[in-house]
């Protein structure tokens, strides 16, 4: 079971735009993503919202499947910029690797 840490969105601020909270999990990003893979990126954005750090690190390889093509950001009805959230998560994970 994932532990919920609502402060995680604050921890993410140094790594990119603070937009994950705007997402209402409609799944448009997952539907338009060329990867069409296991609710990516919707699921991982939900992990950011609930602060499921362990899940993010466990699924970190999925982040690098992202093509950074920007279709999700173009179509997001909430302006949550899913592409930028994924890029921020990559930075977070890389920083985590460097620390450990």
């Amino acid at each position: 079971m994932a532990r919920i840490e609502t402060a995680f969105i604050e921890d993410m601020k140094p790594f990119g735009e603070d937009v994950a909270a705007a997402c209402f999990n409609c799944g448009t990003c997952a539907a338009i993503c060329p990867l069409v893979s296991d609710h990516f990126p919707r699921k991982i954005i939900r992990y950011v919202q609930i602060g499921a750090k362990d899940r993010i690190l466990e699924h970190s390889r999925d982040l690098w499947q992202c093509l950074h093509c920007g279709l999700c950001t173009q179509t997001c009805p909430r302006g949550a910029n899913p592409g930028e959230i994924i890029l921020s998560l990559k930075r977070y994970v890389v920083a985590n690797w460097r620390r450990s």
């Binding site: 060329p34 990867l35 499947q65 093509l67 093509c69 279709l71 173009q74």
Partner: peptide, 25 residues
Amino acid sequence: GSFTSCCGGPAESISPKLSDQIVRK
């Protein structure tokens, strides 16, 4: 235009297989 589809190129170093699937579509 603004709704163009990716060629899959950005994935070619991490996963040539994934890149190939996307470019073929």
